[in-house]
Design a protein around this nucleic acid. Structure first.
Lengths: 282, 282
DNA sequence: CGTGATCTTGAAGGGGGTCAACTGGAGTGG
DNA sequence: CCACTCCAGTTGACCCCCTTCAAGATCACG
C-alpha cells in the first residue's frame, strides 16, 4: 500500500509553520466543553469556573504521536482527525476518523502512552484535559464524568464499525459501507446525508478498509458506474441511498440456505455485479 | 463463511437448561470487583458494604444480545467471551474475545442498547453492574470510577488490535498476529505464552480475522509446516516465538524505498514463503 | 517548467473465496 | 452396541477479485 508518512504536501499546502504547533491556544471553560458534548449544564458555577485549554491545529498537524507518553485526552471542537497506528515498517493502519464531540487519546489511559496517533485533516480545534486532572475533574464535576463515559462508549462503538467495514469481501461493499457510515454520521451532525466532502485521501480510505488505494479508486468508479454515487475527486454525492444501502448488506456466504429464490444467487460477488448492472439498465 | 448462529451444539453439549440463564447467581462485594480489576482497595468500608451480583454462565450461554436494551455492564470474573455483531443475513462478525478483568457491554451506554452480543465460550462468571447504578457508584466510590475508565480504555485498545490483525494481506500473517496477541495476553495473565487452549472455533477465528474458515485451517497448517507452531485441534503451542513474531511484521507494500538490500524483497507474499521454507530447510 | 503529490486506469499474476469431499467426535435412538 | 445424524476441522480444485507494477492525467508549488 505504501500508506507512508506523507505530511509534506499537507504541511506545504496549508503553510503550517510548526509541526506540533501548540500555538495560538486560548482558554475556554468546562461549561463550553460540556455543552459541546451535548450535556445540559444549567449554570453550574463550578463548571464555569474551571478553565479548559483549547489547542488549534492546521491540516497535517499531529495532535499526538503513537508511543508518546499519555499527557492529555482531547475533545474535538471542530475539524476532522485521522486516528492511526504505524507499523514497524512505516505502514499506517487507519483506525478511524473522528469529528466534532468525539474524544481522542483515551486509549492511552490504561498503558501510559498513546497506542495510536492523531493527525488533523483540516483546520481543527480541541479541548485539552490533562491526564493527571481527569479523575479529579470527574469527581468534582459529575456531569463531566458522565459526558466522558458516554463519549468513550461512542468511541468503542466506532471501532466496532471499523470491523464492519473491513469484514466485507468485495471492495465495493467495503467502500459502500464506509460511505454510508459517513452519511449517517453527517446526518447525526445535522449536515446533508447525501453530499459531503471527503477530508481524507484515497490512501487513508484504503488503509481504513484494508485494501490497496488503487482498489479504492476502482471501487469509486464502480459505484459511480452503477449509478449509486457521483464522485468528483473528494466531492461525493450519494445519488441512490436505497441502492447503496442494499449493497452494504452483502457480507460473506450469507446463510446455510441461501435464498432458494431466483437463479442461485449464492455468491456475494455476483450479487455485487448483477443487480447493479440491472440498476444501470433500468 | 456461514458463521451462523450455531448454539444448538453448545447448548446440547453442555446441557444448559435455560438459554439466558440468570441462574445460580449469588452476591459479592464491590471490594472483590475492585480487587479483580487490580485496584488497591485497603479496607474501604463503603466498597465492602456495596453488594454486586454475580452471574454464572455455561458454555454457549448468551450474556446479552445485540439490539436489546442496555440493562447492565459486566466485568469478567472468569471464563472467556466472544463479542460479535450479527448482520441482517445472519453473518456473525466477531469483534474480539474477552477474558478475566475485561469489561463487557460498555458500548451500549451511548445508545441505550447493546450494539454487540456476548456469548460465553466456556463456563464463566461476571460481576453485574446495572446501567442505572453506574454513575452513582462512580461518584460514591472514586476507585470504581477509575477502574471503570481504565477497563474501558483497555477495551478501546483491544479493538485497535482487531484492525491490526485484519489489516495484513496474507492470511498466515493475520493468524500469526492473532496467535501472538493471545500469547501476550496469556503472558499478562501469568499463564504460559507458548502453550494455550483455543476457546473459540475456527469459524470464530475466521470471522475475527476476516477470512474464510477454510483459510484459517490452511493457515494453521502452513504455520505448522514452517515449524512456527504445533497444532492439535484447539491445542496450540508456539515453537518458534521469534519466527512467528517476525512474520507478524509483514504488512502491505512496506515503504517507498523497499530495503535495497538483498534480492528485492518487495512483496509481502514472498517474504511469507521464502524465509519460511528456508527455516524449514535450515 | 520541473518536481512531487494525488488520483485514475490498464495489465498480469497469484492468493483466497467458494464448493466439494472426507475424517473424526458427540449425541441420539434403535 | 451400532447405525445415524450433525458438526468441526482439514484438504483439494477451480477461478474470480484484488494486489502489485506501471503509466498517464491533473494539480500545487517554487
Amino acid at each position: 500500500m505504501g500508506n507512508i508518512v506523507r505530511l509534506n504536501r499537507a504541511q506545504r499546502q496549508f503553510k503550517s509553520a510548526a509541526c506540533c504547533a501548540e500555538a495560538t491556544g486560548h482558554q475556554s471553560s468546562m461549561c463550553d466543553l460540556l455543552q459541546l458534548m451535548g450535556a445540559d449544564v444549567g449554570d453550574d458555577p463550578l463548571a464555569t469556573s474551571v478553565l479548559v485549554p483549547i489547542r488549534i491545529l492546521h491540516a497535517g498537524d499531529t495532535l499526538f504521536h503513537a508511543g508518546f507518553a499519555a499527557a492529555a485526552i482531547y475533545f474535538v471542537r471542530s475539524g476532522t482527525f485521522k486516528i492511526f497506528q504505524t507499523a514497524d515498517d512505516g505502514y499506517e493502519q487507519v483506525l478511524g476518523f473522528a469529528g466534532r464531540a468525539e474524544v481522542l487519546g483515551f486509549d492511552a489511559l490504561c498503558m501510559g502512552q498513546y497506542p495510536t496517533a492523531a493527525v488533523a485533516l483540516e483546520h481543527a480545534s480541541v479541548f485539552v484535559v490533562l491526564v493527571q486532572d481527569i479523575f479529579a475533574l470527574a469527581q468534582r464535576i459529575p456531569v463531566f464524568d458522565r459526558v466522558l463515559h458516554l463519549a468513550v462508549s461512542r468511541a468503542l462503538t466506532r471501532r466496532g464499525d471499523l470491523a464492519d467495514a473491513m469484514a466485507a469481501v468485495a471492495a465495493e461493499v467495503r467502500l459502500a459501507r464506509f460511505l454510508v457510515q459517513l452519511s449517517q454520521r453527517a446526518a447525526a451532525c445535522g449536515q446533508s446525508p447525501c453530499r459531503f466532502h471527503l477530508r481524507m485521501s484515497r490512501r487513508d480510505i484504503a488503509s481504513h478498509l484494508g485494501v490497496a488505494h488503487e482498489t479504492v479508486s476502482r471501487s469509486f468508479s464502480a459505484l459511480a458506474r452503477w449509478g449509486l454515487v457521483r464522485v468528483d475527486d473528494r466531492e461525493v454525492e450519494i445519488t441512490d441511498m436505497v441502492g447503496i444501502k442494499s449493497l452494504t448488506c452483502s457480507t460473506r456466504r450469507p446463510v446455510d440456505q441461501p435464498v432458494a429464490q431466483g437463479p442461485r444467487q449464492t455468491y456475494v460477488r455476483h450479487a455485487v455485479n448483477k443487480p447493479m448492472t440491472h440498476a444501470v439498465a433500468g
